[in-house]
Lab assay of single mutants.
Amino acid sequence: DLSALRVEEVQNVINAMQKILECPICLELIKEPVSTKCDHIFCKFCMLKLLNQKKGPSQCPLCKNDITKRSLQESTRFSQLVEELLKIICAFQLDTGLEYANSYNFAKKENNSPEHLKDEVSIIQSMGYRNRAKRLLQSEPENPSLQETSLSVQLSNLGTVRTLRTKQRIQPQRTSVYIELGSDSSEDTVNKATYCSVGDQELLQITPQGTRDEISLDSAKKAACEFSETDVTNTEHHQPSNNDLNTTEKRAAERHPEKYQGSSVSNLHVEPCGTNTHASSLQHENSSLLLTKDRMNVEKAEF
């Protein structure tokens, strides 16, 4: 173990290094160091905050020279020094078990990766560091076993998940096959086929009936047209017969005018059967003409 005197000496050296690497504005270890034209180094955030307070150039807090945003430059070497100082402080805390008085939040800088452990060898070769390295080497064999167990647990979990997924996939297939086998029997399929065939026959029977009705309507229309044509021909046949009657009536009127007047009046009210309204109107006109002729003949006879 380190003596108290040596611990104090190391602590004083760390404090001196820390004062050199402090920012003059925030009085902390410089984060993202930036250098000016006057070779003074500050935190990048502190300098941008200072420049944004005034429009135009501002003055350096140490030498009062003008500073602009374009004049600022990043210093990589200074950032490396800060990183190495942080590593020294971490090693000091691990070796002594004491917390550094002016320690900052170094938890963000710590890294437990194997590459980081290899890099620590180049920091300080001390008894405390050696003991700590031995402890780490002793704890390393235990870690692979834990990793193997965790991997086995994960693989077993994956296997159970896969088996569950396969079961879920197989179950719908089985149910679907069961439904297909038990849903419709052979008799049901035959009945469905016969039902479809009967429906098709009914459709075939319905369509000819409609065509037959249309044919019957067409035949009825044709018969009505033929009947009207026969009526017209009958009226045409009746007209010459009426003319013959008129000639006979004229002759009778010349011989017996008194008797014919009474008979002509009675004939006005008689309509021949089986004739249309057109034929009756023609008869009325003929009878009126005959009456006028008879009157003329009677007057001539009187004179």
Rank of each mutant, 00 (worst) to 15 (best):
I41R: 03
Q125L: 01
T230P: 04
A252V: 06
T76P: 15
C43F: 00
V270A: 08
V153A: 08
D218H: 04
K87R: 11
H269N: 07
I206F: 06
C273G: 07
L217V: 11
I30L: 08
C26R: 01
Y260D: 15
L146S: 08
G159A: 10
C23Y: 00
Q239H: 05
S113F: 04
I206M: 04
I89V: 04
S176P: 14
I25F: 00
R251H: 09
R130G: 06
M127T: 14
L164V: 12
A91T: 01
L94R: 12
F78L: 15
A279V: 07
E84A: 05
H116Y: 14
G159V: 04
R251C: 14
R132S: 12
L158H: 13
N157T: 03
Q53R: 01
N297T: 14
R132P: 11
P33R: 00
H278N: 09
S71R: 01
L72R: 03
H269Y: 09
S126T: 02
N15T: 09
A279T: 12
L94F: 06
E302Q: 15
L81H: 01
E28K: 00
S288N: 11
E28D: 09
Q239P: 06
M296T: 13
S79R: 08
V82I: 06
T277N: 04
A4D: 09
L164M: 09
C60W: 00
I123L: 12
A220P: 02
S152R: 10
K87E: 10
E99K: 06
D213E: 15
P61L: 00
G128V: 03
P114H: 05
L268S: 15
E148G: 06
R130I: 11
L21F: 15
S126C: 06
E226K: 04
K118Q: 06
N157K: 12
N131Y: 10
Q53H: 01
Y260F: 03
E99V: 09
Q147H: 06
G199E: 11
A224V: 01
L29M: 04
C38F: 00
T36S: 04
Q147E: 14
K37Q: 10
R77S: 07
Q73P: 05
G274D: 14
P114L: 08
D119N: 10
K54E: 00
P257L: 09
K167N: 11
L98F: 05
S58A: 13
E249G: 14
F45V: 12
S152I: 00
K134I: 01
S75R: 05
S156C: 04
N191I: 02
A193S: 08
N234K: 06
K37M: 10
N105K: 12
L27P: 01
A220V: 10
S197I: 11
Q18E: 15
C46Y: 01
N131I: 03
M47V: 07
D231E: 15
D244G: 07
E285D: 10
C43Y: 00
V10G: 02
R132G: 08
I67K: 02
L27V: 00
E302K: 14
P144T: 05
N267I: 03
N246S: 02
P208H: 11
C43S: 00
L29W: 08
A223G: 09
L27M: 03
M17R: 00
G274C: 12
T163P: 10
E285G: 02
T292A: 08
R174M: 12
L217F: 06
I123M: 14
R295G: 09
K259M: 07
L155F: 12
E202K: 03
K221N: 13
V10I: 07
L117I: 06
K31E: 08
V82G: 07
N15S: 06
A223T: 10
K49I: 05
S197N: 10
K37E: 07
V82F: 03
V153L: 09
G128C: 03
N143S: 08
N102Y: 14
D1G: 05
E258Q: 09
L48V: 14
P144H: 08
C225W: 15
P172H: 08
P24T: 00
S139N: 13
Q93R: 04
T96K: 01
L151R: 09
C90Y: 14
K300T: 11
K109Q: 08
S150G: 04
Q80H: 09
N276S: 13
I30M: 00
N52I: 00
Q18R: 00
C273S: 08
S122A: 15
C38G: 00
